[in-house]
C-alpha cells in the first residue's frame, strides 16, 4: 500500500472538495430548521380508519340475503 500523498492537482482538488463539502449532519440540521414538522395525523384519523375497516369486514362476512332466504 502506497503512503504517498497525491501529486496530481485533480486528485488534490477532489480531496479538498470532499473535505469542504457540506456535511450531511449540517444539511439535516438546516433542513430541519427550515421545514416545520409536517402535521401529525388528525385525532379522528384512526377512528375513521377503523370504522372503514370494520365496515369492509362486516360486508365481507355478512351472509348474503338469498342465502338467508334459503335458510329460512
Amino acid at each position: 500500500m502506497t503512503s504517498q500523498a497525491p501529486n496530481d492537482l485533480d486528485q488534490l482538488l477532489a480531496a479538498w472538495a470532499r473535505a469542504r463539502r457540506l456535511p450531511e449532519a449540517d444539511a439535516e440540521r438546516i433542513l430541519g430548521a427550515i421545514v416545520p414538522a409536517a402535521p401529525a395525523l388528525p385525532a379522528s384519523w384512526w377512528f375513521e380508519f377503523n370504522s372503514k375497516v370494520s365496515a369492509v369486514i362486516t360486508r365481507a362476512t355478512a351472509t348474503p340475503a338469498p342465502a338467508l332466504a334459503v335458510l329460512r
Binding site: R21, L22, A27, L31, V35
Partner: peptide
Amino acid sequence: MTTSRDDAAAFTWIFDRHRHAVHAY
C-alpha cells in the same frame, strides 16, 4: 405557511438537488 407532507417532500428534493452547488458558491 402550513406544511403538508407533499410540500416537505418537494422542498427536500429541491434542497438535496441544489445544496452542494449553493454551498460551494
